[in-house]
Design a protein around this nucleic acid. Sequence first.
DNA 1: CGTTGGGCTCACC
DNA 2: TGGTGAGCCCAAC
Length: 113
Amino acid sequence: MKKLGSRPHPSASHSLFQRVYALVRRVPRGRVVTYGEVARALGMPRGARTVGWAMHACQDANVPWHRVVNAQGKISPRPTACFQEQHVRLKEEGIRFSRAGRIDLAKYGWKRI
DNA sequence: CGTTGGGCTCACC
DNA sequence: TGGTGAGCCCAAC
C-alpha cells in the first residue's frame, strides 16, 4: 500500500509554484508569513525550501514576495539586491525590526494562513 | 530518469 | 543568541 502523505489536491491542475503564489497573494499589507507556514498550508510540512525556491523564481508583480520570511522572523540572507529591497518594503508597510533584524511573528504574522 | 541545489527548518549543542 | 548538520520537496538540468 503506498501512502503518499497529505496531499491536498492529488490532481492539481496548477503547479505547486502556482499554488504558492496564489496563497502568498492573499497575505495582506503589513503582515508576513514564513516559508514553512506556506508549505504546511499547501500540504508539505517540510517543503519550506521549495517555497523559497518558488519565491525565487517568482516574476509575478502581484505576488508580495517580500512578505515571506524565515521561521526566525528574519529576511533570509542572499547575495542579491532583493534582500535589502525586502527590508525596505516591509518597513514601508509599518513592520518593525528588532535590533537583531528580526520581525515579531506573533505580532506581524498573518493569522489567517 | 538520476542529480542538483535553493530566499528552509528543526534539533542540538 | 548563534552555529552546525542532517532532512526535505520539487523544478531544472
